[in-house]
Amino acid sequence: MTAGTSAGPALSRGLRPSAGPQQAGPGGRTRKSLRTDGPAGYFFLSPWILGMLLLTLGPMLASLYLSFTDYNLFTAPEWVGLQNYVDMFADQRWRQSVLVTLTYVVISAPLKLAVALAVAMLLARPRRSQGFYRSAFYAPSLIGASVSIAITWRALFSDDAAVDRVLTALGFPSGGWVGDPSRALMILVLLAVWQFGAPMVIFLAGLKQIPRELYEAAECDGAGPWRKFWSITLPTLSPVIFFNVLMETIGAFQAFTSAFVVSSGNGLGGPAGSTLFYTLYLYERGFQDFRMGYASAMAWMLLLAVGLVTAVLFRTSRSWVFYNDGSS
């Protein structure tokens, strides 16, 4: 908070990188250098710090507290210790939601990223018609997951509708997917993949950031397209790849809206619970069954699980993500 209030003097005094060459290089991450940009750091971070303190930290702590209580939304929460966490493991529907979510994460995140990267590569090279293609490929992602898209998506995967017809023509009669518990989740996977625009745009922006000279230099050395991809594109793009992998994974763990609008009918996450995402069940417990304590415990359990995955990703990133700023 002091950083925000002392912004005035900081502007005149401190907002100058005091980092000399001795600290800016690869070896700059030493203890004593940590203080160097202090005032400037807090100044630039002040909106974020304010947001964290005003809007995020309190609610997060409140939900952590509620996870140890029995809270029906309307009357005082009652402390129950770890009961909610214990109950989860005996809850059949909770286990089902974990299974559905893990399946979804494992299939949808890699598939979406692969498609996004492939299309971004396809569109990266300057071409005259590129603006058109970029917009067209992005179009599905403009729509979001609304009731309109739910109606469309259900219609495509019904009996004798477009998907069924194409598959039947190819010799794979599939029937409708919407009412089939063993296939309904795939509809949501395909919806996620169809809306690959966000990671695609991020990949595109990353590809555009790669200095042309690197490729030119490699071409001088006689490198083919494959070598250029492996030794220039991938390493230079790695911070962006890392970002997309992390965000799509976290996003898939928290997927909610698609199942909420597309596949919920006779209860959330239908048919027969086959699309019961973790957050969907959390919502059902918290807002429909008035068990916000349990829902909060579920949320923190998810935070722990996804936090673990994130930590592992960050740890491995040290060996495959290359930053230009000298650190890795």
Partner: peptide, 12 residues
């Protein structure tokens, strides 16, 4: 900051 990404928003 990364931590704030991990908590499902419904409980907030």
């Amino acid at each position: 900051m990364i931590g704030t990404l991990l908590l499902p928003f419904h409980v907030m």
